[in-house]
Design a protein around this nucleic acid. Structure first.
Length: 503
RNA sequence: CGGAAUGUAGCUCAGGUGGUAGAGCGCACGGUUCGGGACCGUGAGGUCGCAGGUUCGAAUCCUGUCAUUCCGACCA
């Protein structure tokens, strides 16, 4: 811990300074647990240090701080645009759901009952009927749709809701599983099964497009096995992402309900042929969990790494210089910020005088800002700025005259290379398993997904979970291979399934 | 919901066998600094998670409770 400053000749001083810098770098990095050391620890360290969330004094609940909430706002912005483009409109349904509504759909109530919080009294008075705090809104929406839909002319009904929901989870993890979370839930009603199924898959594709384009997370799309489907659905489809520790996160789901909820809630319409028919419904949801996935897919030992397209701050401008040069660099920085904003970039300058440039470099890397723009006296003399990429650390001296073009181009490149890196990782971590041992090896030792044949029996699926800790993720529409036998019982495979350990 | 660990200043933590609380970092003020987490000086800041109990006296011992982390069961 001794500085080398007392040394009297240049070479020694230089060596000691370099060692000192290394030591400091180490120290900084140590404040975030290394991914390889303890991935869970790393995750918690990063989200707290990057100021995304704070724990609330209620079990399993968190506060989204501005930097975390802005990530969700970016997701909302991009998703909402896609929902509108596909003909949906937003509405809002109540937070409280009468107990009797849950009784109407047997599978549904059984599925959610263990995690429902209930309102039983108001002031000193007991309520006549208990009210659940919604875990999802199918029942309330079903009830309302039964009153709104009378004719085939009322269909399709395409509504989305942005809301908070509550599921009292036994085990929580910020973003990935909290007792209360934010999400969107789409609810649609259609005249025919074909149309409803088409909607279900269309919205799954909207999720794929959103997650891959905006969040740079490659996903596996497919159908859930019966044991993993939504309570009350005929079929559930999902997109599954693989984290850097090899574990799976279900990034979005889309459900085809058939007429199940329509029958339970009496959603009927008079068709062209003057016959009363039950509608076909769908629902689809994507939650703040996706932010956890983004962190775990892109983050590294230096902290967060946010894809430019959703980054609340895309470019951080750091003016550098001693007090005499201060005014000059700060003015230049302001000008650069204004110019970049003009072309639509989200840019901020950090001109705080009490923090050194080095401190800011580390800080914004930890916070995942994709691009840093350094502006010092030497740069101004040369008519340039230094751009530094978060994804690969590359430094580029760029002429101020074409800063807009270069910054925009670099952000696009970063977005692309982040997706490519994640995709390469996914390819390396997608194995095939011909036996239960293979499967265990793949998910436990190789931290991967495993593609395996499955006969379709619940027992075999349960056995896989028991033996390997992996659950079925989904049944891909276009599997990369076609194993013919069930990995457990060796009878002919009815499906090809992705298995993985899940969050 | 079961097992384990933790809870003391904003953060990380130290406080043998009970005697009224400390460090580093951060924060505030002043000054010097500024191209990869700068430095000096001064200062503010804690009903020791909460509630009981034992005791003349509890951060310390006991009981309960709440929260967080990890493992397991349950669950998307």
């Amino acid at each position: 811990m001794h500085r080398g400053a007392v040394c009297s000749y240049g070479l020694t001083v230089a060596v000691n300074v370099a060692e000192d810098d290394m030591a400091k770098k180490e120290e900084f990095v140590q404040s975030i647990t290394k991914q390889s050391e303890d991935f869970s620890r790393w995750y918690i360290d990063v989200i707290v240090k990057a100021d995304l969330i704070d724990y609330a004094p209620v079990r399993g609940c968190v506060v989204f701080k501005p930097d975390g909430y802005e990530l969700w706002e970016a997701c909302q912005r991009e998703l909402d645009r896609r929902f509108k483009e596909t003909g949906h409109r937003n509405a809002y349904f109540p937070l409280f759901i009468p107990e009797s509504f849950f009784m109407k759909e047997k599978e549904h109530v059984e599925g959610f009952n263990p995690e429902l919080p209930w309102v039983t009294e108001v002031g000193d008075e007991k309520l006549e009927e208990r009210l659940a705090v919604r875990p999802t809104s199918e029942t309330m929406v079903g009830h309302m749709y039964s009153q709104w839909i009378h004719s085939y002319r009322d269909l399709p009904l395409l509504i989305n809701q942005w809301a908070n929901v509550v599921r009292w989870e036994k085990r929580t993890l910020p973003f990935l599983r909290t007792s209360e979370f934010l999400w969107q839930e789409g609810h649609t009603a259609h005249a025919t099964a074909e149309e409803a199924l088409e909607e279900t898959l269309r919205m799954l594709d909207v999720y794929v497009d959103f997650v891959e384009t905006e969040l740079a997370i490659p996903v596996f799309r497919g159908q859930k096995t019966p044991s993993e489907k939504f309570p009350g659905a005929v079929a559930t489809y999902s997109i599954e992402a693989i984290m850097r520790d090899g574990k799976a996160v279900q990034a979005g789901t889309s459900h085809y309900m058939g007429q199940n909820f329509a029958r339970s809630f009496n959603i009927q319409f008079l068709d062209r042929d003057n016959q009363r028919k039950f509608a076909y419904t769908t629902s689809w949801g994507l939650s703040t969990r996706i932010i956890g996935a983004m962190i775990m897919v892109h983050g590294d030992d230096r902290g967060l790494q946010i894809p430019p397209r959703i980054a609340p701050t895309q470019v951080i401008v750091v003016p550098i210089g001693p007090p005499k040069a201060r005014e000059r660099v700060v003015n230049a920085a302001d000008e650069v910020v204004a110019r970049l904003r003009k072309v639509g970039l989200r840019v901020r300058a950090d001109a705080r005088e009490d923090l050194s440039p080095g401190w800011k470099f580390n800080e914004y890397e930890m916070r995942g800002v994709p691009l840093r723009l350094e502006l010092g006296p030497r740069d101004l003399d040369a008519g340039q700025a230094v751009l530094v990429r978060r994804d690969n650390g590359e430094k580029l001296a760029v002429a101020l005259s074409d800063i807009e073009e270069r910054a925009t181009g670099l952000l696009e490149e970063i977005q692309k290379s982040m997706f490519e890196r994640a995709r390469a990782f996914r390819e390396e971590h997608a194995k095939q398993a011909a036996s239960l041992d293979d499967l265990r090896q793949a998910v436990r030792e190789e931290h991967s997904f495993a593609l395996a044949g499955w006969c379709g029996k619940d027992e075999c699926e349960a056995k896989i979970k028991e033996e390997t800790g992996a659950t079925s993720r989904n049944i891909p529409f276009a599997p990369p291979a076609h194993p013919e036998r069930c990995v457990v019982c060796n009878s002919p495979a009815a499906h090809v399934v992705w298995f993985g350990r899940a969050y």
